[in-house]
Computed example of a mutant assay.
Amino acid sequence: MPYGFGKFLEEQGKSQQTIKDYQLVIKLFFQFIDKKFHKEKELYEINPRDVKDFLQDKLEKGSNRSTVNKYLSILRVFFDYAWQVGKVSIDPVMKIKSLPIHKKSIPPSAQSYVELLELLPEIRNHSDYTTQRKLVYLLALKGLRNVDFQFKKQDVQIERECVNLLLKNRIITFKDKADRELFIEQEKFIRHQDTPYFLITKKHNQSIFPIAFTTVVSHLEIISNDYSIDPKITVSRIRKEYATFLYQEKRMTIENIAYILGIEIASTTKLIRNSLEEKYRVKE
Score class of each variant (00 low, 15 high):
Pro108Arg: 13
Asn146Gly: 13
Asp194Ala: 12
Val217Ser: 04
Tyr197Gly: 05
Arg145Ala: 13
Glu278Val: 10
Lys283Pro: 00
Phe32Gly: 05
Met1Thr: 02
Val77Ile: 07
Leu99Ala: 06
Tyr113Ser: 09
Ala140Trp: 01
His102Val: 12
Lys134Gly: 09
Ser228Asn: 14
Phe198Met: 13
Tyr242Phe: 15
Glu40Cys: 05
Ile200Asn: 06
Trp83Lys: 15
Ile90Asn: 00
Asn64Phe: 06
Ser112Arg: 14
Ser105Thr: 11
Pro107Phe: 10
Tyr71Asn: 01
Glu42Asp: 10
Glu10Val: 12
Asp176Tyr: 05
Lys270His: 09
Glu255Gln: 13
Phe189Arg: 11
Leu144Arg: 03
Asn256Val: 03
Thr215Leu: 03
Thr268Cys: 15
Gly13Tyr: 11
Leu139Asn: 08
Val114Ala: 06
Gly62His: 00
Glu60Gln: 14
His219Leu: 04
Lys20Arg: 15
Gln23Phe: 08
Val51Met: 07
Gln132His: 00
Asn274Asp: 15
Ser105Val: 01
Leu24Arg: 14
His204Asp: 03
Arg273Gln: 14
Ile171Ala: 07
Gly262Lys: 13
Leu28Asp: 09
Leu9Val: 11
Leu167Thr: 07
His204Gln: 13
Leu119Trp: 04
Ser275Ile: 05
Ser105Phe: 02
Ile46Thr: 04
Val147Asp: 12
Ala110Tyr: 15
Asp21Leu: 02
Phe149Ser: 12
Asp176Ile: 06
Leu144Met: 09
Asp179Met: 02
Ser275Tyr: 02
Asp194Leu: 12
Arg49Asp: 00
Thr244Phe: 07
Arg65Ile: 07
Asp34Gly: 02
Arg239Thr: 09
Glu187Lys: 10
Asp230Arg: 12
Ala140Asn: 04
Pro107Leu: 05
